[in-house]
Simulated assay, not measured.
Amino acid sequence: MIRNCKVCGTSYKTCYSCEKERSWRLHTDTPEHYYIWTVLMEYQANHDAKQAYSALRKRGIDLRNTAEYTPSVQALLAEIYALAHENSRAKKAVVEAEETKAEEQVDNEAESQQE
Rank of each mutant, 00 (worst) to 15 (best):
H33D: 06
I2T: 11
A67M: 07
P71L: 06
H33L: 04
R57H: 05
V95L: 11
H27L: 14
A45P: 00
S72G: 04
H47T: 09
A90D: 08
S72T: 11
E42S: 09
K20E: 10
C5G: 06
S112P: 00
I80R: 08
A93R: 10
Q114A: 14
T10C: 06
H85N: 15
R89N: 13
P71T: 07
H47V: 06
P71C: 07
T66F: 09
W24L: 14
H85M: 10
Y81C: 05
E32A: 12
K91N: 09
V73D: 00
C8R: 07
A84L: 06
E109P: 00
A78V: 01
A97E: 13
Y69G: 03
R57L: 12
G9E: 06
R64G: 05
I61W: 05
K6C: 09
Q105W: 05
L76M: 13
K50C: 04
E19S: 12
H85F: 10
K13H: 10
M41N: 15
T70N: 03
A55M: 12
S88D: 09
E42N: 09
T70P: 01
A49V: 05
N108K: 14
E98N: 06
E21W: 11
Q105L: 11
A102F: 09
V95N: 02
P31L: 13
